[in-house]
Design a protein around this nucleic acid. Sequence first.
DNA 1: TGGCTCTGTATTTTT
DNA 2: TACAGAGCCA
Length: 748
Amino acid sequence: MDYLNSLNSQQYQAVTAGTGQVLVLAGPGSGKTRVLTQRVAYLIDAMGVRPSAILAVTFTNKAAREMEERVNKLLPGRAGGLWLGTFHGVCARILRREAADAGLSRSFVIFDSDDQLAIVKAILRDLGIDKLKDPRLSAYAVHAAISRAKNDLILPEDYPIGLRSRKYDEVYAKVYQRYQAELDRNQAVDFDDLLMRTYLLLSGKPSIREQYARRFEHVLVDEFQDTNRPQYELVRLLSSYHHNLFVVGDEDQSIYRWRGADYHNILRFTKDYPDHQKILLEQNYRSTQTVLDAAMAVIRRNPNRTAKRLFTQLGRGTRLTLYEAEDDRQEAEFVVDTIRETARGKISPGDFAVMYRTNAQSRLLEEAFLSAGMPYRLVGAQRFYGRREVKDLIAYLRLIQNPGDTVSLLRVINTPPRKIGDKTVGMLQFTAADLETSPGEILLSLGRSGPASPHWGRFDSRAATALADFGAQLAAWIDLRDSEAVPALFDRILSDIRYQEFIDDGTDEGEDRWENVQELRRLAYQQEQGTLAGFLEQIALVSDQDTLTESGDAPTLLTLHAAKGLEFPQVIIVGLDEGVLPHIRAIESGDAEEMAEERRLFYVGITRAKERLYLVRADRRGGFRGYEEQIASSFLDDLPEDLVERRGPASSRASSRAYRAYRRDSQWDGGGSNWGRAREPYTVPPPARPAAAQERQFTPGMRVSHASWGEGMVIESRLMDGDEIVDVVFESVGIKRVMASLAKLQKL
DNA sequence: TGGCTCTGTATTTTT
DNA sequence: TACAGAGCCA
């Protein structure tokens, strides 16, 4: 157990904690992963726990893999059989094993965001709602409402009508029901289903719950601040027999609120498990004190947090650089120049990470790198898996795995073109609906039996032949699926459909597309041992971080979200402008929690830096209609002057003056200023001053009473401008939004 | 049926 | 900008 010697006393305490519940509050860079890894090793090594009785849940597959490697290094050959993975991955595994009890086909597929959105779109079209052009009824918004419901563990038939708006809720409820029915018809689940269905399975079937709860003597959870309701409940259920629960988190790094994550789960944990041990990890082993001081100055402004003191023994280090460029092109050039000029000697290009708030910001950066002839690594799964050619091939694979997957079928039925047009497809769907089967089954019947198929007569002979040809192909692939490994199947599809001919038209773009196909093929070849189902699952659940490769000495480009859990010697954060970071949507929402999350995002970015941190902004940015003037991010205001060295053409000029004037104005006009040729004004709430910081007095579910409206229940509450805005459903008058200070609500 | 052009609109973050 | 979807024509 030599490994224990390298721990500080808090880390040691955490790693060697006995049984029961343990909450480790770990600041950035405090050795959280190390504690988790060694804890697992300690359980096996010192406490004699079988690896297969340990469940460890991480946030990304990458983190899981790293943890596995490190445990294996500590205990060579003794850690096999650990359950290690992401929440979504673990849930998929459980659902696959318990498919029958979960009401699923064992070969269920996981729909990606595009498929999910496509289903919502089709339903809206069917209901004639797409014509309304109401942004709150856009496919995107409706899908978000469904996702929110699932994250609140609300089933379609229980969707509450009239809580917010009767008109919208009715649509959401209806679409939710049809959406879920459509998933069922396709034998498919979405991301939220993985969590919700596992929760329903475990909560609804005591025998299955007990089986898993007995099995997992120890449950460990990483990034606990980013768990949502289903995840919290799952952890509770899975640890409900042995009650050994070890969670690690940091409220200040919670950045997935929009996905239902709720850092209050940390507080909830302390209440639900009153006998827990709490251990604080404050010593930072990653960054210089300057970086930490900057980080603390930024995060201090957030209300509702446990104050932490981050300290290091790595010395003061270099001051931050704040570079103010004239425009976003110059911003990108600064990034490239800085890396080129600094990366020599001890610092190499691979030491750099460039972080941004939105993916769109990577474009200019990429262009700048390309024109400078410098390589870079871009983190992001969507970039690859969202490509048409990649999606096509995955759709083929999914269809072979599950012919009931009509979404995939429709995607590939005429791609490449095989003379099956809209009319034929319409007939196919109609027939399937008529006979209460899936289009895929009809296709297979035509393929296997030809004119002898009972469905043949439904189509004219040309259409029937085309369908039968494709059906026969599909049937052959399905046979191959059962006899061959994934790579062989993949190559067979490629050659059968002559995909290269279709996609690679000799243009640069065509070559590019074919290159992507090759990349997917490489991934398939790594799946020599695994099943098709496993390959598809792995593909469906890749996280952005999983696409981060270790190879090559090139700077990494990634979003602030994707940067969570990583560290780099040199960090450049771009886009420090009001409206970019913090993002305009957070500002416009007027929701203090959303602004707090933007701040946490900045905090996460800052604390990734080991040695040196650059912050970059631009006076003007190109939007989709020309350039727009920018104001420096209000977050920059919170950095102590003595930690920052200002540079750049813009720093001493107009923008700063305008910015200061703007700040002054916003003191008394409540935000919104016009100067120069500024665009539409928007209001910027003042940064959360400690004075204005306060606790929420009302939480959802709480019973309250009001002098004239009587009793009601709180459905939502948030802090805004130092007051609390509470939504309450009153028994007498329905839903009302009130200011806590004026309404004099009484808690019951 | 297939391919082209034109138009309108928008995703912030991602499992 | 960029991408999906509609509309048009061969």
